[in-house]
């Protein structure tokens, strides 16, 4: 938190330095900046989801527009992209079996959105589509483009629905709040199963429904010391890890007999 405060102070300084000479004639275009209080988040043993706070500022904000609340900010935290297979179960001889499947390239594992107002109130659907902003506007690239559009559409919808159901794609309406005319705070949700890797935070500024500017920052989410070591060892030294798992089991079995023996 201390880092975040320091950042806010720094943001204020740059802001005032900018605004003073800029007042002359034509109002300069607004700009948006965001900063993260930390560039990495560790997932510890007790991790069960968290809220991530992102601070940001508007530069050259028009006080009149700001007072009327016509500035809107949408902040997105996008997880690393990975290929995903969506499978559909169908009934075969009475049993539900995965039959149809569709592979998508580069699907963000997580996608958390925070907005000042409900998405449909900020701007029109076309602008969202152009900016590819919002979980429902993300373009999912099918690996096999030869499939029928209806199938691709069905599986894309299912993919979004599953992601939302597991909390990986979330929307926090009202999650962005203006603290003053120029400063805002965005709260995005990190799901308990948030993927590790490089996440990208992006902030979009809208003025009376028009897209003005975008700013981004990077965030590294990783497992904390102990969990990370286990994960790394399991992948880099998988044979030794297996030997360790087996020895641990035998040791536990032997100790368990010593401690709890009843015969």
């Amino acid at each position: 938190m201390a880092d975040a405060k320091a950042f806010v102070a720094a943001a204020w300084l740059t802001l005032s330095a900018f605004t003073l000479p800029g007042m002359a004639q034509t109002p300069p275009t607004e700009n948006i900046q965001i900063g993260l209080s930390t560039d990495n988040v560790s997932i510890t043993a007790g991790f069960s989801g968290a809220d991530l706070t992102i601070f940001g500022s508007l530069e050259n904000a028009d006080p009149l527009v700001a007072r009327q609340g016509r500035y809107d900010v949408i902040v997105v935290l996008e997880g690393p992209a990975r290929p995903v297979v969506v499978r559909r179960k169908d009934r075969l001889l009475g049993i539900w079996i995965n039959l149809e499947s569709e592979t998508f390239e580069n699907v963000p594992v997580s996608y958390s959105v925070a907005t000042t107002r409900p998405l449909q109130d900020v701007t029109d659907p076309n602008s969202y589509k152009q900016l590819s902003l919002g979980a429902s506007n993300l373009y999912m690239q099918p690996a096999d483009a030869g499939d029928s559009p209806a199938t691709i559409q069905e599986f894309t919808a299912a993919l979004r629905e599953r992601k939302a159901a597991t909390g990986l794609y979330s929307e926090n309406v009202g999650g962005v709040q203006f603290l003053s005319q120029n400063l805002f705070r965005a709260t995005v949700r990190l799901a308990p199963n948030v993927p590790v890797g490089t996440h990208k935070a992006r902030a979009f500024l809208f003025k009376s429904g028009l897209f003005i500017k975008e700013s981004s920052a990077q965030l590294e989410i990783r497992k904390s010391g102990f969990e990370q070591s286990i994960f790394r060892v399991a992948h880099d030294y998988s044979f030794l890890y297996g030997v360790f798992a087996v020895s641990l089991a035998m040791l536990t079995g032997w100790l368990g007999r010593l401690v709890f023996r009843k015969d």
Partner: peptide, 26 residues
């Protein structure tokens, strides 16, 4: 089996296994 799963699929979770074992042997 554990060894081969650990080396080919990386699907052995020692933390999970240990909690189960601890309860199990008792």
């Amino acid at each position: 089996t554990t060894l081969v799963h650990a080396t080919t699929n990386q699907t052995v979770d020692v933390m999970l296994a240990f909690l189960l074992m601890a309860g199990g042997v008792a």
